[in-house]
Design a protein around this nucleic acid. Structure first.
Lengths: 323, 323
DNA sequence: TTGAAAGCGCTACCAA
DNA sequence: TTGGTAGCGCTTTCAA
């Protein structure tokens, strides 16, 4: 593979001149430029980004750590980010932590040695940032990891409130909340918003069941529902949970939304495919990814950012699982 | 950020010695080693991978191009790959082409300048590889892009046969095949296997409808089904299509599997969430990703590979959309 | 067992 | 407008 020296030799100029041409920087005679271009063409030359990176001490790579790829929620986020990152002329180094802090640390180490220019982090470990000697901009996504690290999250507290209000106005009196693990901040906020709203009505009974989202929790859902036949409303921590609950109810001979009404969370595509379709709290997932990336680039370019912690609005989407 | 020189100075040795220590290569006195280790610790030193990459002319990065992230099928593939890539000490640079050849070329260019060590490519452009001056190992995934580029695919032809046999043995006489675009090789193979099998029975009528998978094609499905009320069997090119068809049938008051039987394709999670659940042709998606990555590393290490084109078996998974 | 120095491919400074 | 060259941080030869 040809390098800048080869081009210089063929064009009969110095490497400095070639460099000026490929970077369109500094003075270079039109004729000389043509000579260089021809040599580049002939040798099929492409500049070596690694050498450039070494000189400029920056790789133009953005590191991204998310818990899991097998999750439409995170996929939509990444999809949003990738566009922005590409558009800014950077590359994406994508990593999944599988919710393991050791793996997060491993990737952080890799990022550190590879001189990434920015990091988008979706982690449950509040002190994760301290495990890195990375002195580059970081944006926390979906979860706040520290007071002074910029973040982009959805309004989870409001999500809980919206779900509660809906189920209440629908007349549900015996409600179960299948919530995510307490190690995950958004799950806690949703739970808080939900319970605080519910607690205003003394005639409503609310059960809370905490589930591990990373494994198949159908049997736990089933176990709860079979032992609590009086349940008439469900707030599910994710649309997947909502779909599973619906299947369990069906097996138990209870119909949705006639006997039990369900509100899910996220608004991923599955909501439209179940029967009945799922009423849910929609998060602006793709926007979250885009805004996180945009914020990161503002930090990289040392532009001012309006606010450290950006909270995006959520919205209730009415479908068939409520009436 | 400290560099190797700083460490050398602090430990009172040469950079060559530090290099030997951090690479555990060549002779170095036990005591000297300790001194160096202490200096590394004290300075919080991490070697600069970019400088290393420049020297060794390899970035330890694997480029991955897939059509779309918002597709469970590809996510599962990537999930499989990532593990293998990490395990081999490499990094993943992930890119989505959005089925655009220009975007593929753009990323190929980026890969070329970034000296990636290997490429996993899922593309519909048969001549895409020629657009790159990359002289690195390439593995084609899910689709064969050229006779001499190693590939990992599922047995799409057999998938078509399995689906056809099932619908035939179920007694369907009026069948529609909602197939993927003819620009996508796997869609063609499935179609061939399906039609060749179906054609053996002169009493069966088969319609073929070609759909664009990248947009919402529900209305086309609906239009076909409403104008062909005699349909009693459907072979869907993906589980998503199968799910959409089921919703359309429901709207039309036709029940699955009583009036119409459906076989999907892929075996993604949605199969379990619809009602009825979807009978489908299962592809070993995650394995495809893993094997593609394993093959790539064999090529990188110049180890022999057993066969250039690996075809993985598919399997019919019986669920409720057939009886 | 250690160190000096060349070189990986590039950019940018300074001189000409 | 051009070229020589130092230097980005590292590895590896070669000599000591």
């Amino acid at each position: 593979m040809a390098n800048i020296k080869d081009v210089a030799r063929l064009a009969n100029v110095s490497v400095a001149t070639v460099s000026r041409v490929i970077n369109s920087k500094g003075y270079v005679n039109e004729h000389t430029k043509e000579l260089v271009m021809k040599a580049i063409e002939e040798l099929n030359y492409v500049p070596n980004e690694i050498a450039r990176s070494l000189y400029r001490k920056s790789s133009k790579i953005i590191g991204v750590i998310i818990p899991d790829l097998k999750n439409e929620f995170f996929n939509d986020m990444i999809s949003g980010m990738e566009e922005v990152i590409l558009h800014h002329g950077y590359k994406t180094m994508l990593c999944t932590s599988k919710e393991s802090i050791d793996r997060e640390k491993e990737y952080l180490q890799i990022f550190s040695t590879n001189k990434i220019d920015g990091l988008i982090l979706c982690s449950n470990s509040p002190d994760i940032a301290s495990y890195t000697n990375l002195d580059i901009p970081i944006v926390a996504l979906d979860r706040i990891i520290s007071k002074d690290i910029p973040s982009v999250t959805a309004d989870n507290y409001m999500g809980g409130i919206l779900a509660a209000n809906r189920l209440m106005s629908l007349g549900c009196k015996n409600i179960v909340q299948f919530r995510g693990p307490s190690t995950v901040a958004p799950a806690n906020e949703r739970c808080n918003g939900f319970l605080e709203t519910m607690n205003r009505d003394p005639y409503i009974r609310v059960h809370t069941v905490e589930l591990d989202f990373s494994t198949d929790n159908t049997s736990e859902i089933y176990k709860f529902l079979i032992t609590h036949p009086q349940i008439d409303g469900i707030f599910a921590g994710s649309d997947i949970i909502a779909a599973r609950a619906m299947r369990c109810l069906k097996k138990l001979g209870r119909s949705v939304p006639e006997d039990v009404q369900i509100v899910g969370y996220d608004n991923i595509s599955i909501c439209e495919f179940t029967d009945p379709t799922i009423t849910t709290i929609a998060q602006p997932i793709q926007s979250m990814g885009e805004i996180a990336a945009e914020t990161l680039f503002k930090l990289i370019k040392k532009e001012p950012i309006e606010q450290l912690h950006i909270t995006l609005p959520v919205e209730l989407i009415e479908r068939e699982s409520t009436k």
